[in-house]
């Protein structure tokens, strides 16, 4: 039953209360708006403006306006294409491995295991480590002189000759990816696990009744039902991987022979080590655009997959 209450029947209501409520709501939103302006809008706009000037010092001052020259320089810079290649490789390989491993581990953890809470706690540990600590840890593991990895290979009789895991550019990039995957697979596991727990078990029973085996149920039921979780985690991980900086800084410093320099690391070098803030800002803007474009592509693909899978 729907009842209507007249204004006169509500003695507590004052004229213009809606207006007051609106103002009060705005007042409550003000702190958040100030914070968003300060930490999001201001830096974004500032970076854009800086990218249009030839700013070659950290100090405020008068710098020549150069329009889009910094962006033109980026596209004429051979090193930009090299570091972009490293970044794309890092992003694609690390995200793929993290997703594949993450789904596999999540499926295991979703199974009725004994002491499941313990396994879940163990899986979260790498993610709980700060990236800097993780980088330092793996740098020690890979150390060619006294690293644990060479020690293990020696103990198992696989190789007595120590390998310089971070000594060759391409090998080093892959070893950094392994360190990144070790840490970040955890977050994928938990996203996927959360998604798995929302799938009703009767769907699997229905699939079984319809003659679908586990493999078919995984591809035709689990994956489509997980699509929203996969979309979210894929976007997050892609963006994070594309921006990778700290683990590179700690593990290799961009070497050897610049073989592990990524676009974020290169941006940092240009902006802070070389004080080319205008050029660095242009690079940073291109990262933002690339990440935005990647996110759009992923969303589109996964939405299509979701629709196709569900129908």
């Amino acid at each position: 039953m729907r009842s209507t209450v007249r204004e006169a029947d509500r003695p507590w209501a004052r004229q213009g209360a809606g207006q007051h409520e609106g103002r009060f709501a705005l007042l409550l939103l003000l702190p958040a708006a100030v914070v968003v302006f300060g930490v999001v809008i201001w830096p974004v706009v500032r970076t854009l403006v800086v990218s249009l000037y030839d700013v070659d010092s950290a100090m405020p001052g008068s710098y020549p306006f150069v329009g889009l020259d910094n962006y033109v320089r980026v596209f004429q810079d051979d090193r930009f294409y090299t570091v972009l290649g490293h970044t794309m490789y890092f992003t694609l390989v690390s995200t793929f491995l993290e997703l594949a491993l993450g789904i596999a581990v999540a499926l295991l953890l979703n199974a009725p295991l004994r002491a499941r809470w313990l396994w879940r706690s163990i899986v979260v540990l790498p993610w709980a480590l700060p990236t800097i600590v993780n980088g330092a840890l793996w740098r020690w593991i890979y150390n060619g002189q006294y690293g644990a990895l060479n020690g293990l290979l020696d103990t198992l009789g696989i190789s007595e000759t120590p390998t310089q895991w971070l000594g060759e550019p391409f090998l080093a990039l892959n070893m950094v990816i392994i360190a990144d995957v070790w840490k970040n697979t955890s977050i994928v596991v938990f996203f996927i696990l959360a998604g798995l727990q929302t799938i009703p078990s009767d769907l699997y029973e229905a699939a079984r009744v319809d003659g679908a085996g586990p493999w078919r149920a995984f591809w035709r039921l689990t994956i489509p039902m997980l699509a929203p979780s996969i979309a979210v985690v894929l976007i997050l991980r892609t963006i994070e991987a594309f921006k990778v900086f700290d683990i590179i800084y700690v593990m290799t410093g961009g070497g050897p022979a610049s073989g592990t320099q990524t676009i974020a690391f290169y941006t940092y070098l240009q902006a802070f080590s070389n004080q080319l803030f205008g050029y660095g800002a242009a690079l940073a803007y291109l990262i933002v655009l690339a990440v935005f474009a990647l996110a759009m592509v992923y969303l589109r693909i996964l939405k299509q997959n979701q629709l196709a899978g569900v129908e």
Partner: peptide, 10 residues
């Protein structure tokens, strides 16, 4: 904000 930033750079 763009105007403010421009003042800072310029």
């Amino acid at each position: 904000s763009g105007l403010l930033v421009a003042c800072g750079v310029g």
